[in-house]
Design a protein around this nucleic acid. Structure first.
Lengths: 247, 247
DNA sequence: CCAAAAGTGTTTCTCATACACCCATGT
DNA sequence: ACATGGGTGTATGAGAAACACTTTTGG
């Protein structure tokens, strides 16, 4: 552990490891991913595509810290659901010249070997504050399915992260509430389930199932501005949830 | 099993990434982990402890290949359930002098920074063939809970991998059959469930539940040498299982 | 015969599903 | 009034759990 020529407090590690964040947001209709526009030039021909937000890890931070940093720098948010889900280390994942050139220019690292990346999933609410933060950055919310061809193996990472979300929801449904605003209607929750599970859910049965859950707390407020009967608003109570799921 | 002499075709990558395998086996009573004895010397004082089998990754293999290699070199087995479950990259995980010295001696790599490891879970049958293979190596089956203090952060990895197995069994129960011999009794299966889930299961109900599953196929054979009524043997049919779980 | 585990039957309860139907509200 | 979604009631069936019971086998 020689720290002799460590410049400032932080320096980028050159150990070929990065983190990438698959940041999901729900707009009421569809799941969206937060992607970064990437531009560059290779052989006189410029390119313009998208990638998952990510970064090489610093030597003085662990993996989770690196992922939180990426998220914080991009969105300004700290208290966000974020969990590691898989490491990607295909032999060819950093071989595309376009990717290599972009990476070297962006990070200042010489990319002379395969990089391994640890992918994270973040779930957050698409709201005004986050949109304001994103203004002027190169980040865009992209609806799932319309993302096109991404940099590196990011299409694969994205695909696998969606299966991962399905597993997560099946295993501990509480994470779904991270995608909803604090106050939400049963319909919004149902539509979110439907988009994640990719199947229709009977509205009546869903309503009853939810009304039995003690941690989905009805409020004395109603929706406004609907073209039909206003729905009651609910909130998710994490404390009650944990009490029921710790045993 | 030492990595001191490297063939020229392959070379160890020096990018600070390794794989570790948590290899589980069921002996009929308890879950066991396959650990490697590790000896060395530091400051004139010798030490003797245990670690998970693992290896730095080569530059010409991906993560999964590295994990399979570790497993193959240790057990001689190729067709084994093996799945990545988490990357570990704590800032301090390769700081213990004992670990650093051992690692440098073993791998020939200068360890001047934190290593990141990708942990894998393997499930296999403890059988005669595997025991023979292990004979003379430094590997031992250690019952869960008796492993003591391990190298690096391997205690943490082991702990988390047990939770992971519980999740895996809940999500796709087929993986449990990788821990059992090809022919097994319902009792053996139940005991395995009980050790993994850490709870008693009613024998009668369990029997009925299993007898309804089309992919647990009864054989025309019975146990021998029991001090009580001989139980029927069953086998797991993966083809039927997939047919029922692909929809 | 007895102990111990294999294997069976019965009952109860919870929960998912299907589906019919009434309610409230904006246009 | 009527369309649209909010919210309720009812019936059915599958499966989990509790538990008593019979069967088979070795000692």
């Amino acid at each position: 552990m020689t720290h002799t020529e460590l410049s400032p407090a932080r320096r980028i590690s050159d150990n070929g490891i990065s983190v990438d964040c698959v940041i999901f947001g729900f707009d009421g209709e569809r799941l969206n991913v937060l992607l970064l526009r990437r531009t560059g030039e290779i052989g006189g021909i410029s390119f313009d595509d998208m990638k998952l937000p990510g970064s090489p890890i610093y030597q003085d931070e662990d993996l989770d810290e690196a992922a939180h940093r990426v998220l914080k720098e991009l969105t300004g948010l700290s208290n966000v659901y974020l969990s590691q889900f898989k490491a990607f280390g295909s032999k060819t994942r950093t071989e595309n010249p376009r990717d290599v050139i972009w990476l070297e220019k962006e990070s200042g690292i010489k990319v002379d070997r395969r990089m391994v990346t640890v992918a994270y999933i973040a779930l957050l609410k698409i709201g005004r504050s986050i949109s304001r933060e994103l203004n002027g950055s190169r980040a865009i919310w992209v609806p799932l399915g319309t993302e096109g061809s991404l940099a590196f193996d990011h299409n694969q990472i994205l695909t696998e992260s969606i299966s991962q979300i399905r597993r997560m929801v099946a295993l501990s449904p509480d994470c779904i509430f991270d995608l909803l605003p604090r106050k939400f209607t049963i319909s919004q929750l149902r539509k979110l389930y439907e988009t994640i599970l990719q199947e229709k859910i009977d509205a009546g049965n869903f309503y009853k199932k939810l009304s039995v859950m003690p941690y989905v707390v009805p409020l004395d407020e109603k929706e406004t501005g609907t073209p039909h009967r206003a729905a009651r608003l609910y909130r998710f109570d994490r404390v009650i949830y944990r009490k029921n799921h710790s045993e």
